[in-house]
């Protein structure tokens, strides 16, 4: 009987636990369903058009993240570059367009549309180049009908990270090419307002990369890598990492991948973070009818640290989460 009693008790416990589990699942589903419902109430009958620069994972990840941050009832129309270029789909002033990537941004700007346009996942330098190239953009920018969340990090944030990693930082350096000239110009201007000496050198196709890097590393405390034609796609990236180890001088990358490959640290915003921030902007504008905020660098970002490289350089105390919160505190971000 005792055994039976135990069995019965166990069964009852199992039944009641199952019931409780069902109840919890039901509540969770209900609660989950209530949030979009609340959003939907505020944004009913709104729709956006998303134009992707391509079909690769990068754009698809951005689109998926954007949809996740919008109410499920909001209509999201996804268009290709070809549909815009061929005129198959005409954009009107009532449209709200999100362009993902540089090609999509250019394609929509080229249509001389009056639609509201938020461009994401493109470098700041590219956005301003395009804005100059298409004259009506200036007016749209002023009227809050054109804006962007850039892919690159603000120069000050990158310099702040370098300073956090090396509090005695005196000189920081980088190599650039024609593509990254504007990014380096921004860094130089911001560094000019601080006591950090900023050294940069343009890489030419005829340059010996090791000789140039050797000279650069001799005079700096931290190397800041910027993307570019010659910087990333060539073995130059490998020499940058190797000489960083050899000179025991930190190399700061611009993506999580760079850190995995051997850079000491990087501050970056991934497509999900940028798309998430774009989702917040969209809701704000659609709910309130306000113009778009001015173009800006992402305020949501991450910091990564390569632990093995940090240990090798005697910087084992660096912790990514702490650096991230310190950077946010310096910018008074939540």
């Amino acid at each position: 009987m005792e055994v039976k009693g135990v069995k019965f008790g166990f069964k009852a416990l199992l039944n009641s636990s199952f019931g409780l589990l069902l109840l919890l699942v039901g509540m969770w589903v209900q609660a989950d369903a209530m949030v979009p419902a609340a959003r939907e109430a505020a944004t009913a009958s709104k729709s956006i058009t998303v134009v992707l620069s391509g079909d690769s994972g990068l754009y698809q990840r951005s689109l998926a993240a954007l949809k996740r941050h919008l109410p499920t009832t909001m209509e999201v129309e996804s268009l290709t570059l070809e549909q815009i270029a061929s005129g198959e789909r005409q954009l009107s002033a009532n449209d709200f367009v999100v362009t993902v990537g540089a090609k999509a941004a250019e394609q929509v700007m080229a249509t001389a549309t009056e639609a509201r346009q938020l461009s994401i996942l493109l470098p700041s330098s590219t956005f301003y180049d395009l804005a100059k190239q298409y004259p009506q953009s200036a007016q749209r920018l002023d009227g809050g009908r054109l804006s962007a969340i850039f892919l690159d990090q603000p120069a000050r944030r990158q310099l702040n990270l370098a300073r956090l990693i090396n509090p005695n930082l005196k000189a920081i350096g980088t190599l650039y090419d024609i593509r990254s000239q504007q990014l380096v110009q921004q860094l130089s201007e911001v560094a000019g307002g601080t006591d950090i000496e900023f050294r940069s050198r343009r890489l030419l196709p005829s340059d010996n990369p090791i000789a140039v890097l050797r000279e650069m590393y001799r005079d700096i405390d931290v190397f800041l890598a910027v993307p570019g034609k010659y910087i990333f796609n060539r073995s130059t990236a490998k020499w940058m990492l190797y000489l960083s180890y050899r000179n025991r001088k930190p190399l700061l990358g611009f993506s999580e991948d760079y850190v995995t490959a051997g850079a000491l640290a990087a501050v970056y915003s991934n497509p999900e973070q940028i798309a998430g921030e774009a989702g917040s902007w969209l809701q704000e504008c659609l709910d309130s009818g306000k113009p778009l905020p001015p173009p800006s660098h992402p305020s949501i970002f991450s910091v990564s640290v390569n632990r093995e490289v940090a240990s090798r350089m005697g910087l084992g105390s660096l912790i990514a989460a702490r650096l991230e919160s310190q950077l946010k505190a310096q910018e008074q971000l939540p």
């Binding site: 990068l58 990537g101 540089a102 470098p123 690159d152 993307p227 570019g228 993506s255």
Partner: peptide, 8 residues
């Protein structure tokens, strides 16, 4: 100009 792929 720089493209998003330069980051990725």
């Amino acid at each position: 100009s720089l493209q998003e792929h330069d980051w990725n």
